[in-house]
Every structure is written in structure tokens, then in C-alpha cells.
């Protein structure tokens, strides 16, 4: 470490805990949603093409969540505001994905409302803690 540089750890612990738990939650969410789609495909009449489109959207949402959480975790641990910022930008995309599953998809079950609600709560909390950690990274490293 170069002299004059601070040795204070600026990575945010709450943010890291949230991202870690959100990773597990997202995995469980995608599995649960796939099972829900199997149930809905078996019991409810779908317009042609709607069900595959929604399943593909869910899988893309899962991939996007993976990238977002990876960037957030690595950015937080290496104290790079850029990666955390990118993760926050991606969280806007996953926000729309969750909103689609809550509001605009063909059939919305109560289970899905609750599951996406928890996901949205995670995104909201991570938005707050992500912004706080970006600010602290930018403030404490004037020549970063």
C-alpha cells in the first residue's frame, strides 16, 4: 500500500449481507417461479406464445440478477464505485422485470405477488446501501 493512502475499509457490510442473501433468494425465486409457470401452464388457458415468452423473460431476469449481484459484490469488496454504479443501473432493469411479474403478466398468483414483493424490497434496500457505498468510495479516495 502506498504511503499516505488510508487503510480504512470502506466496503459496506450491510450492502454485502444484502447482496449475499439476495443471491440465494434470487436462485430460490427463479426455481419457485418456474414451478409456478408449470402449474399455470397445466391449469390455465394461455394465448399462443405467451407462456414461452414469460418463461424466457424469467430466465433472462435470473441472468441479469446474477450479473447485477456479482458486480455489486465485487465492486463493494474492491471499493470501486463504477461497478457498484453499474450494478445499480442493472437493478433498474431487474426492477422492471419484477414489476412485469407483479403487474403485467398474463396471470398473477398471490404467491407471485409476495415473492416479487420480497425481491423488490431487496432491490430498494440495495439501492439505498449501494448509493451510500458509492458516496463513501468517492469521498475517501480523492485520487482514485
Amino acid at each position: 500500500m502506498a504511503p499516505g493512502q488510508s487503510t480504512v475499509i470502506r466496503s459496506s457490510l450491510p450492502y454485502q449481507i444484502l447482496l449475499y442473501c439476495n443471491g440465494w433468494y434470487s436462485g430460490a425465486f427463479v426455481i419457485a417461479e418456474l414451478l409456478v409457470f408449470i402449474y399455470k401452464g397445466e391449469t390455465l388457458p394461455y394465448a399462443r406464445g405467451n407462456l414461452p415468452a414469460e418463461i424466457i423473460l424469467l430466465l433472462l431476469l435470473g441472468c441479469l440478477e446474477g450479473v447485477r449481484l456479482f458486480l455489486g459484490q465485487k465492486g463493494n469488496l474492491t471499493e470501486r464505485g463504477m461497478a457498484v454504479g453499474l450494478s445499480l443501473v442493472l437493478s433498474m432493469a431487474t426492477l422492471v422485470g419484477f414489476l412485469y411479474l407483479t403487474l403485467w403478466q398474463t396471470y398473477v398468483l398471490r404467491l407471485e405477488v409476495i415473492l416479487t414483493g420480497i425481491g423488490l424490497a431487496f432491490i430498494g434496500l440495495e439501492l439505498i446501501f449501494g448509493l451510500i457505498s458509492i458516496i463513501s468510495f468517492a469521498r475517501a479516495a480523492p485520487y482514485g
Binding site: 449475499y20 442473501c21 440465494w24 433468494y25 430460490a28 398471490r110 404467491l111 409476495i114 415473492l115 420480497i118
Partner: peptide, 22 residues
């Protein structure tokens, strides 16, 4: 053990909420 505890907690939360609604 940490994720297992978290996910079982969330599962219990979700199912309690569903009973609340139906």
C-alpha cells in the same frame, strides 16, 4: 448454514402471508 436459515425464514414468511390472504 447462513443461507439455509435465511431461506427457511423466507419460506415461512411467504406461506404465512399466503394464509393471511386466503
Amino acid at each position: 448454514i447462513v443461507p439455509a436459515r435465511f431461506l427457511t425464514l423466507i419460506a415461512h414468511l411467504v406461506i404465512t402471508w399466503i394464509i393471511f390472504w386466503s
